[in-house]
Simulated assay, not measured.
Amino acid sequence: MPIKIKVPGKLMIAGEYAVLEPNQYAIVAAVNRYVYADITPSNQYKFSLPDLGFETVSWVSNSHSIEFSETDEKLQFVQNTIMIVKDYLNEASIHLSPFHLTVTSELDDPSGKKYGLGSSAAVVVSAVSSILALAQKQTDSFHVNKDLIFKLAALAHVKTQGSGSGADVAASTYGGWLEYSAFQADWLLDQMEQKSSVRALVDQPWPYVSIRSINPPAELRLCTGWTGKAASTGPMIKQLKHGQQEHRNIYHTFVEESHEAVEGLIRGFDQNNLPLSLDSLKKNRAILVKLGKEVGMLIETPKLASLSELAEQIGGSGKSSGAGGGDCGIAFVRSQRQAEQLWEAWREAGIEPLNLTVDHNGSTWHE
């Protein structure tokens, strides 16, 4: 009988870009669009990614690598994930019999629209969760927890992407609204180079990482709108890193101001203070817009500006979500009635409201 896995996507709420720096916080939420996986014993190691056009890919492993029956850059996330989890389990003296892993996603629209809900991170978390769940089923003494899933998935994601905060990995793993402070990707890559043991790296504390579940004010309604244009996080981060060298004072000021805005939003959540939450989100938007203008990056597109301004016109606040440059924007409003007003205004402006709610379960599985 297959083990079935369900992993949510994510929305970045606040703290983008600054979260890449030590001791800087972001707020991220898991949402009710999912990546699904199932894993079952098989006569050979194989996996299926039908959404990417891979019906069945077989693989063989030796002590140092995994060889796939197909070669494609799109398979790198899965390849690195399987290798890292396999190494971890081998070091724990757990040897899995062959399995067939199938992963499907509803994070993007069936028509091909890409919403920017953290697809690669959710796929990696689903693959890690699947293999660990099978190991737990086959090994009485082995028990999976979400901290282990998060660390293994973060290792695979950073190894493949070379950068990132891991906030999307955390949301897909733990679920809910999270206050998140990131590891340093460069440190993690260095540790992977230096350490021969995945288990030792997973077991040691990771500097700067902090993950705490938080809850928004009771009346707050989260709205999400898609601008009609897909964006890619990796190139945006590289562009900022390049600009960071040229505009050090600007970037330093941005990080300080972002810290203040995100701290205000966290306080608003912790104190059930809706006005403070709305004001802090508005401040975070202004800080990101200013950064984009000063370093020559289009973080807030005209559609994202319209999305936020329409939210402000009815007494809410809004901003881009994630790297910006397209994809989704978010808004906080004070009631369901305001949310419905905003959705209608967005439609008239050519912005597609998305029916997203916060998922509080994170990665789950059952037989």
Rank of each mutant, 00 (worst) to 15 (best):
V198I: 15
V198A: 08
R199G: 08
A200M: 09
L201D: 01
L201H: 00
V202R: 03
D203R: 04
P205L: 01
W206N: 01
W206I: 07
W206L: 06
P207G: 03
P207R: 06
Y208R: 09
V209L: 15
V209D: 02
V209K: 03
V209G: 06
V209S: 02
S210M: 00
I211C: 10
I211V: 06
I211G: 03
I211F: 00
R212C: 06
S213Y: 06
S213L: 05
I214F: 05
I214Q: 04
N215F: 10
N215V: 10
P216L: 10
P216W: 09
P216F: 06
P216I: 05
P217M: 05
P217E: 03
A218V: 15
A218W: 02
E219K: 15
E219Q: 15
E219V: 05
L220K: 10
R221Q: 14
L222H: 09
L222Q: 04
C223R: 06
T224V: 15
T224H: 05
T224D: 07
T224K: 02
G225I: 04
G225D: 02
G225T: 04
T227G: 00
G228H: 04
G228F: 08
K229Q: 12
K229I: 11
S232F: 09
P235A: 09
P235M: 06
I237Q: 12
I237W: 13
K238P: 05
K238A: 15
K238G: 12
Q239K: 12
Q239C: 01
L240W: 04
L240D: 00
H242I: 15
H242K: 13
G243S: 14
Q244N: 12
E246S: 13
E246W: 08
R248L: 07
N249C: 07
N249Y: 10
N249S: 09
Y251K: 05
Y251G: 03
Y251D: 01
H252P: 02
H252V: 05
H252D: 14
T253A: 10
T253H: 15
V255Y: 04
V255I: 14
E256F: 04
H259S: 08
H259M: 02
A261I: 05
A261E: 01
V262R: 03
E263N: 13
G264E: 00
G264N: 00
L265H: 00
L265D: 00
I266M: 05
I266V: 14
I266D: 01
R267C: 10
R267G: 04
R267H: 13
R267F: 11
G268K: 05
F269N: 01
D270M: 11
Q271K: 11
N272G: 09
N272D: 15
N273C: 13
N273K: 04
N273I: 08
